Amino acid sequence: MNLQASIPAGHRVNSAGHLVPEDLISPVDKLRDDVVRDIIAKAIEQRNALASFKLQSMQKIADFCDLSAAEYGVEWGGVKGNVTMMSFDGRYKLIRAVGEHRVFDERIQAAKTLIDECIAKWSEGAQSELKALVEHAFRVSKQGHIDVNQVLSLRQISIDDPDWKSAMDAIADAIQITGTSQYLRLYERQQDGRYVQIPLDSAKV
């Protein structure tokens, strides 16, 4: 239902959801309302245009990648990882980045238990430092999530212990891919040779 269309002529809805006759609203309040609504309406248009631009750009990149691969008899089909493309003169660069959404399933708790058991059985000297690293990696965010990258960083620690290796295997097994997101980043080369990202965020324009 379009709430705006259901508002009787000569009235406006206040923040409490009540109909208020316009002749009871001060001129400055009405003008403020008009200014806000006008800017928001244009912002929504820009958001929709940007969404359409991204969709069309991603499709063009995918089509070009398929065309380029076809020269070598390869059929890609769909989105296959990150892609960097340059203009012929090197002035412009675009990057299509594909990021995975990764979460841990219930097996991460088993991994944490194995790690805690390893720390408990090792010498007291090594325990405090490693325990701090583990607690930091497994800390839970305000949203109730464990940072996948932080936990995976523990796999970089080389410890010759079968229980530790089992814990690291459990971490790897606990990762689940729940989806992907595509990102489009556009760059322009500056006179000093650096590539600076072309901002599509109004706060950076």
Rank of each mutant, 00 (worst) to 15 (best):
M1S: 13
N2H: 07
A5D: 11
A5K: 15
H11D: 04
H11P: 03
H11W: 04
H11Y: 13
R12T: 15
S15A: 13
G17E: 01
L19G: 08
E22Y: 01
D23M: 06
D23K: 08
D23H: 09
I25L: 14
S26W: 05
P27Q: 08
V28Q: 14
D33Y: 01
V35Y: 09
D38P: 06
I39E: 09
I39P: 08
I40M: 14
I44T: 12
Q46T: 08
Q46Y: 13
N48I: 10
N48G: 02
F53S: 10
K54Y: 05
K54V: 04
L55E: 11
L55D: 11
Q56L: 13
A62S: 12
A62H: 07
D63K: 08
L67N: 14
L67Y: 10
Y72L: 14
G73N: 01
V74C: 06
W76P: 12
W76L: 14
V79C: 08
K80D: 11
G81M: 03
N82T: 10
N82V: 01
M85K: 06
F88S: 07
G90C: 05
G90S: 05
G90Q: 05
G90H: 00
G90L: 03
Y92V: 01
I95W: 09
I95R: 06
A97K: 10
A97V: 01
V98E: 07
H101L: 15
H101K: 15
R102T: 10
V103Y: 14
V103D: 14
F104V: 03
D105C: 07
D105P: 00
E106C: 04
I108T: 05
A110C: 07
K112V: 04
L114N: 06
D116V: 00
C118I: 07
C118D: 00
C118S: 02
A120I: 05
K121Q: 09
K121T: 12
W122M: 12
S123C: 06
Q127P: 00
E129Q: 15
L130M: 13
K131R: 15
A132E: 12
E135W: 00
E135R: 08
F138K: 08
V140P: 07
V140G: 09
S141Y: 01
K142P: 00
G144M: 04
G144L: 04
H145I: 07
I146D: 02
V148N: 04
V148T: 08
N149V: 02
V151T: 04
L154M: 06
R155N: 11
Q156V: 06
I157R: 15
I159V: 13
I159T: 05
D161C: 06
D161Y: 02
K165D: 02
A167P: 03
M168K: 10
A172L: 09
D173L: 08
A174V: 03
A174S: 15
I175Q: 00
I175A: 06
G179A: 02
G179H: 03
R185K: 13
R185A: 11
R185N: 10
L186K: 03
L186E: 09
Y187M: 01
E188P: 05
E188L: 04
R189A: 05
R189F: 01
Q190P: 06
D192M: 02
D192T: 01
G193T: 06
R194S: 07
Y195F: 11
Q197A: 07
D201W: 03
D201M: 06
